[in-house]
Amino acid sequence: MQLILEKNHLMNKFRKIFSMFMNDKLALISIIFLLFMVFLAIFGPSLISESYTKMNLRLRNLEPFSFDHHFMYFFGADALGRSMIARLILATQNTMFIAGSAVILSMTLGGVLGLISGYYGGRIGNLIMRLADIIMSFPSLLLAVIVLYMFDPGLLNLIIVLAFTRMPIYMRTARAEVLEIRERLFVSAAISMGASNLRIIFKHIAPLTIPTLITIATLDFAFVMLGESALSFLGVGIQPPEVTWGLMVAQGRNYLQIAWWLAFFPGLIIMLVALSLNLLSSWLRIVLDPRQRWRLENIGDKSE
């Protein structure tokens, strides 16, 4: 009996989350689109094998939306006759990898710095927060351009720079959370039992800050992606022959008058992915906020 009840409870929970998705159709579409993009990023390049480097000079600047050729040429071809679809898929992998790594790095570093700053407070805490002030007081794009111009714009440097410029938001959020959590009873209990500072920070406090940080990271993924594409556009992002969506827009700019699709499609995808992330994070925020959750739950509860 107990078991059945528990199973039901679990099923209910799933149903609830599912119905909260169903009650926000836009969030549902976003998550499907994003999952598709992640699938493309992971498996896409191996599915299309070599066709992203294959040049077909007879199809140079082929116009999109024609059924005369292979479906890989449905979105047209670039100036070297390479299929746009294949290039876009390859760029998906690179873009997602760069943005994903940068977000994870930035969340980890910023989160840890914020935890330390909030837990210890005092001079160390202030010093860390001043670092956040310095990063925030200056246009991140210019800072990234300066740094990337000095060290060559390789993959690793790009990820580090992007992570660095997005750190302050995690530092501030983690710190604010810790300041509140630190005062709770279980922390005092852990202290009185003689737990070390490190153990308290990482074992007791850190897990509680993670949901908030992940909600921020969802939205931040979009910002990092836009930042990466802007850097590529300015010529200090990833370098050819590697390709990202931003770089495709930059390269397509030169052919704007004769082949608009070269710059148009990659830019459109950047916008759609960023929009989906925005919609998803606004859904997440409502789901995680008990005061607002009823907006999504109400309709589903009528049947019960």
């Binding site: 594409s229 802007a230 008058q257 608009w260 710059a263 148009f264 925005n278 606004s282």
Partner: peptide, 26 residues
């Protein structure tokens, strides 16, 4: 307004710029 404003917040500005040049200037 939610969809429109979120779209606006997600638009890569350099892409909008060159698309606008293509449409309104060229």
């Amino acid at each position: 307004s939610r969809v429109v404003s979120l779209t606006a917040a997600s638009a890569p500005d350099f892409w909008v710029a060159i698309t606008a040049i293509l449409i309104f200037s060229v």
